[in-house]
Design a protein around this nucleic acid. Sequence first.
RNA 1: GCGCCCGUAGCUCAGCAGGACAGAGCAACGGACUUCUAAUCCGUCGGUCGGGGGUUCGAAUCCCUCCGGGCGCGCCA
Length: 552
Amino acid sequence: MKQEIKELVLTALKCLEEKRGIEIKELPLFTIEVPKVEEHGDFATNVAFMLTKSFKASPRQIAEQIIECLPKCNWLERVEVAGPGFINFFLKENAWQQIVKRILKQKEDYGRGEVKGIKVLVEFVSANPTGPLHIGHGRGAAVGDSLANILDFAGYDVQREYYINDRGRQMQILGYSVYLRYLELVGEHRDFPKECYQGDYIKDLARELYEKEGLKYKEMPEAEAVSKISQCAGQKILDDIKETLKIFGVGFDNWFSEKSLYEESKVKRLLQWLKEQGLAYEKDGALWFSSSRFGDEKDRVLIKADGTMTYFASDLAYHKNKMERGYDLLVDIWGADHHGYVARVKAGVKAMGFDPKKLQILLIQLVHLKRGGVPVAMSTRAGEFIPLKDVLDEVGKDAARFIFLTRSCDSHLDFDLEVAKSQNMENPVFYVQYAHARVCSIEKMAQERGISFPELLKIDLSPLIEPEEIRLMKLLAQFPEVIEGASRSLEPHRLPYYLTELAGEFHRYYNKHRILGVAEEVSQARFALAQAVKIVIKTGLSLLGVTAPQQM
RNA sequence: GCGCCCGUAGCUCAGCAGGACAGAGCAACGGACUUCUAAUCCGUCGGUCGGGGGUUCGAAUCCCUCCGGGCGCGCCA
């Protein structure tokens, strides 16, 4: 709809140019938008403001001239100049009714963007397999998964990937932690160091190991035992992570192993190449990457003096690999506590000869878990974090996902378990679902009363003229733009806000007007409108990974 | 000290590539169920958009600065 208005304006501009002999030097970046106030029409444009220089006239005068040149259009009621020079467009009712028709025709494809031919890789969660997912990972998972859904729906070619840090020091510590707990079980007590993983899940892993394998690991050399246990425990934890993600409705196309980068010598070859290019140098027994030459505040270590690789070395090889797989855009979703890492990875990408604009890093702010307004104690040091799985068990997937998404990534998020369970507007997930269920309920009631409706596309929509109906149709018309905006800006939170608004508009309508039990033509038209609402809510919720129940 | 994010109604947050008088929910108060689910709806109350400069026809939005809060600044991840 917006696009069509834009075309009209562009035609008018061209006509004006010829008529007045005025040359518009550069096509202005004007906008078409839906005004906040209804008196300002259905759409408005600021184009006149942009042309004051070319035309050497006041915005109002220019606006008048543009209106004169607007082509005739059968769905336009009137166009007027308002305020300091806005052009307001008022549409005929049947223009909005067309939207309902379009939705009923396209069904779950309404809002889907045209295939853009842009390959995107969204990498998210990527939690180390050294412990269960916690609530912060949950936010990243919800945002990443929904963003990927939205991008896909908007017409991008999307892949989802989880990067597994399945090697390195953390994995060693994991193996050692489980080893120590295992030794305790078989009667050998040693100090349990602070840097080891403190959580109870370590004890569970040790117990499982003991029950399955007996004394096997006690009898082998420590180094061998730790290495074997590390691998085995990492796998177990990864399985557990996968299970939690499954419950959460999050899936990946690819699980990328950090270890594989080493097995294929990718890290080694990259470091060699960096050295040859003069981008890496040795100092104090370590190998350094000259990241400061590419915008980072200082150089970074790739190989430590003890000969081990930093994670940063792997990360560079990983990003090189991702770029070489031919993506047009890489989206990395990280916790905000990693923001210090952004500059160095971007520097690396630039140094390796890739366009750093192709890498978008989304930082997700912290989640504060609360219960009834009181913070839930979370001490990572003691390993006393609440696993995501427990939160899902308590509040359910739908509420959790919706809450994680109903906030800009830049904002800290208070996740209150009581609120997540409550069924009021503090927790809008039910509000949106309820609107969907209400439409289903109307269908059911119609069936019970033996009312049958004609084929939806054949229904005459002209009775839809109530202000609440027009408003509802206008909102439905915005859905494709919401998708477009959310994908372009990588801001999935726009969608839940839109859905809440749409649900609200429907609830209002439902309370004021009846769908069944009114004159037949009216009833049919309203039923068709309700179906359109149902389709959009269902599509929107599914993009968020939230179910749309038939009944509540 | 440096860097990133945040500061909008009593509370939790939106504000859509700067646009017309700043929005929603909660809380408070007052209303609406013999008719499609009241998990709903309607109304009232509530804001010098942290302060100050600047750019612009026009700023919550962009720039500078100051103040507050969070996070990060390792040859840890």
